Simulated scan of single mutants.
Amino acid sequence: MASLLPAELAWYVTGRFYAAPDGAMADYGYFLHLGPIAPLFTGTPGEASAHFTFAAQPFTATPVSNGALQLGMDAVGDFSVYLQREPAGDFDHPESFARGERIATFRRSCVVLGTTVHTAAAAHAPGLIALNAFTARLVESVPFTWAGRDHDLSQILGRGVTQFGTAATAAVPTATRPHDVVLPFSGSAIALG
């Protein structure tokens, strides 16, 4: 079983943030790269063919403004990684990313700071880009066999990851309720070792 060195690239993910009118948020998605694990997809890469997915527990963000920057401080919370032997991810049904075998749970170890850059110092100005960063500690890992090889994320990643994310500021249309805003994002993480 291959383990990553500290600060070595651990994963690439893509997903969507789902925001409800009451301020609750959650994020769901799938892995584009996950250490030495392969294959990650059945067929063409996408949410419907992804074998490794993630789902966060709902959280709320505290807003802070600083001129043209809109900041969101997300509370400490958990997210889990799933092995879907039969892929079934669907962004119109975010709960579909929390199916299959839960192979790991991570806990964000501090407040996540998300920053949206606007064109003007006004909350109603259109956002240009949104960025975030967080560290998450591995709190649970279950060994699993995939493609004839044994894996365990605790052996691959060590104590967890630090992830840097980029999100769109333009929402994608959704029929998903109770969410009224859905924003796509991508993230890159390095192993804590």
Rank of each mutant, 00 (worst) to 15 (best):
Gly89Pro: 03
Val13Gly: 02
Gly46Thr: 10
Leu183Ile: 14
Gly29Ser: 04
Gly89Lys: 00
Asp74Asn: 14
Phe31Ile: 05
Gly35Ser: 04
Val172Arg: 12
Gln70Arg: 13
Gly148Thr: 03
Ile37Asn: 00
Ala88Gln: 15
Val64Lys: 11
Phe164His: 15
Thr53Met: 03
Thr176Ile: 06
Gly127Ser: 12
Ala175Asn: 13
Ile103Thr: 06
Pro94Arg: 06
Ala175Glu: 13
Gly100Ser: 06
Arg149Tyr: 12
Phe97Ala: 01
Val139Met: 09
Leu153Lys: 00
Ala125Asn: 05
Gly23Gln: 07
Pro6Leu: 05
Asp27Phe: 13
Val182Tyr: 00
Val117Ala: 12
Ala38Asn: 10
Ala122Lys: 08
Pro173Cys: 07
Ala7Ser: 12
Ala48Asn: 12
Ile156Lys: 00
Pro63Glu: 06
Ala55Arg: 01
Asp74Arg: 12
Gly67Asp: 08
Tyr30His: 14
Ala122Cys: 09
Ala75Ser: 15
Thr135Asn: 03
Ser154Val: 08
Val142Gly: 04
Ala133Lys: 12
Val161Trp: 00
Ala147Thr: 02
Thr166Arg: 13
Leu128Asn: 05
Glu86Asp: 13
Pro87Lys: 07
Gly187Met: 08
Gly43Lys: 08
Thr119His: 11
Leu32Tyr: 00
Trp11Pro: 00
Ala24Trp: 01
Gly114Lys: 07
Thr145Glu: 15
Met25Gln: 08
Ala122Glu: 11
Ile156Cys: 01
Val161Leu: 07
Leu69Pro: 01
Ala7Tyr: 10
Phe164Arg: 14
Arg16Asp: 02
Val139Ser: 01
Arg99Asn: 08
Ala191Tyr: 00
Ser154His: 15
Asp92Gln: 15
Ala122Asp: 11
Ala125Arg: 02
Asp27Cys: 05
Gly46Trp: 03
Gly67Ile: 02
Pro58Asn: 06
Gly77Leu: 11
Gly43Ser: 08
Gly23Pro: 00
